[in-house]
Amino acid sequence: MTQTQIPKPGTAAAVRPARRPIRLTSRRGFVIFGGALLPLAILLVWQLSITLGVVSVSQLPSPAMVFLAAIDLYERGQLTLYVAISTQRVLIGFAIGASLGVAAGALVGLSRGANVLLSPTLGAIRAVPSLAWVPLLLLWLGFGEQSKITLVAIGAFFPVYTTVSLALRHVDQHLVEAGRAFGLGGIRLFTAVQLPAVIPSVISGLRLALAQAWLFLVAAELLGASMGLGFLLSESGGNGRIDRIILAIVLLAVIGKITDAVVGIFEKWANKKWA
């Protein structure tokens, strides 16, 4: 309130006297508008390149055709089904993988013995590409839901495991010692000092894990599924429906961004509370 605003020449605050001294780039409306600029520009270039005949419609269908494909799929009831089943697989797999990741990360981060025992093996398993698991999981678990959820869980496990174990190893030793000096130990020390100290890293690990869960989902659905956005991709690739391929890509981008934004809001809240 008593802060003196130093007007820098050229900035928006100097040109246009604002009621509150908030920078233009941190205003909500500007952020939303700015974020939407590039997608709108892409859409415009896409449409223009078709109307000007730069690319043929068989190579790249127009935005309207993609939209119509979405309507068509929706009317058949497939669009909702595919989106729902894919989201369900991601959420279940993410929940399983993330909780296992927190548990394993806590174990490896807190116990030297567990670190020696587990971390080389887990590091090696992490190095296996997602697609390498698919044939094995299909043979073991079949074409049902288990194989996809397992693969998604594998994808979600590692970001959480890595961030949690690293964060726990780097908790401020001064705070841990202070906690010990006041008689805390074991589980009480963990819940009072170590866990709150790593919550921000845990949440950023969860955010990474969610992104990775979507990647692994498509890998799972591409190779063996009868429903879902990955299946839509592989099926449309087989029968040459480029409009549906683009639709699936756009849907994956939008849904992935929405789930990420939800976790991002949670992250902001948690950072305010715990950091």
Binding site: H174, A178, P196, I199, A275
Partner: peptide
């Protein structure tokens, strides 16, 4: 301690 070592949260 020399530092306050308060839990920031």
């Amino acid at each position: 301690f020399q530092e306050p070592r308060l839990l920031p949260w």
